[in-house]
């Protein structure tokens, strides 16, 4: 798999939380040949199952398909579009960005004049699509349609890349990479590849998927913040230092057993890893841990700078490490590989 090409293809299909149809169609095509069954559940999660011989521990691997964006709530007399944020928009980062609607209508998102950055919120931002009147705007955009900051992905130095929404199309790419790795391997228990919906608005999709399949183990693939930029919060996690094995974020403390296991697998297989403690932000890990009967939950993260901006930055080497470690972990659950 050409990881850069794969990631770029996934990034360029806008799909905000609750409206993941676009990205889901694309991923479905890619994952279907690597699994025995593919479902879409009531909330819209895409679930691919690779059946096991039925006697081993089942595992759910999850990355979220949705991205943050804007929902059209109102069009004013002059054709300006008022929006509500979907997920955690950083308004300062979003200001004066190019945006694109689900139907491909281009525009820019800007704050009202004179509003100070500290007071930025959905109530003082609007999208300008260049419409001259309400009527003209309404021909292009309807209430309920979404916009995203225009997706881009570019290569920087080395294996570094930059763009959006790396959160969490990089996780989806990793999951596809793992599915490829595991395709020809035998597994005792079922493997559920879950591309979840609505993570950005509170980890909703992974909750129902975990409930439905009740896996024994669960592993989440997402981005994490880093402590390697000037003036940033102190954090022992750096872009390029390998797969980040999550110990804690603000929504979860990972099961000590799975952390230990991931560390020892990484060391055995000489996979570059680092330990991650994220003090702000949550992931699907928490909902998988506690849904239904619960699961032994952990997470592998791709360290990413400038998360939720238009210029998210990560290192493909870290994503490759996540693929290698994730695949090795799943293999370790099967007899003969232990």
């Amino acid at each position: 798999m050409n990881i850069y090409k794969e990631l770029k293809e996934l990034c360029l299909v806008p799909s905000v939380s609750g409206r993941e149809e676009g990205i889901r169609g694309l991923i479905k095509k890619k994952i279907a040949p690597l699994a025995d069954e593919v479902y879409i559940d009531a909330l819209g999660n895409l679930i691919a199952v690779k059946k096991g011989s039925g006697e081993g521990a089942s595992v759910m691997l999850c990355a979220h398909m949705d991205e943050i964006g804007f929902l059209t709530t109102f069009i004013d007399v002059d054709g300006r579009i008022r929006v509500s944020n979907v997920g955690g928009i950083g308004w300062a980062a979003a200001s004066y960005s190019k945006v694109v609607s689900e139907k491909g209508v281009k525009g820019v998102i800007v704050p009202e004049e004179k509003v100070k950055p500290n007071d930025y919120s959905s109530s003082n931002f609007y999208i300008d699509i260049g419409a001259a009147s309400k009527k003209e705007a309404e021909r292009k955009v309807s209430i309920g349609e979404f916009f995203v900051v225009t997706p881009t992905v570019d290569r920087l130095l080395g294996k570094r890349i930059c763009g959006r929404p790396l959160d969490d199309r990089i996780g989806c790419t990793v999951l596809l990479g793992i599915a490829e790795e595991l395709f020809s391997a035998k597994n005792d228990g079922d493997i559920y590849y879950v591309f979840s919906v609505q993570e950005e608005v509170g980890c909703r999709g992974s909750k129902t998927a975990a409930f439905a399949f009740a896996p024994e183990y669960s592993l989440c693939f997402d981005v994490t913040a880093t402590g390697d930029t000037p003036g940033c919060e102190n954090m022992a996690c750096r872009v390029g230092d390998g797969a980040a094995i999550k110990i804690k974020d603000s929504s979860v403390i990972c099961h000590a057993e799975i952390v230990k296991k991931l560390v020892s697998i990484a060391e055995e297989n000489k996979i570059k890893y680092q330990r991650e403690i994220l003090t702000r932000g949550g992931t699907d890990t928490s909902s998988m841990q506690l849904s239904g009967r619960g699961s032994v939950a952990g997470a592998l993260s791709v360290p990413t700078r400038y998360i939720h901006s238009g210029v998210e930055l990560c290192d493909l080497g870290d994503a490759e490490a996540c693929i290698a470690l994730g695949a090795a972990f799943v293999k370790s659950l099967s007899e003969g590989n232990r």
């Binding site: 979860v252 403390i253 928490s286 506690l290 849904s291 009967r293 619960g294």
Partner: peptide, 17 residues
């Protein structure tokens, strides 16, 4: 477990069972 964190959710899986 997990009462002091996880928004008091640790009990849920046990009670579900």
């Amino acid at each position: 477990a997990y009462e002091e964190t996880s928004h008091m959710g640790g009990i849920s899986p046990a009670a579900f069972d």
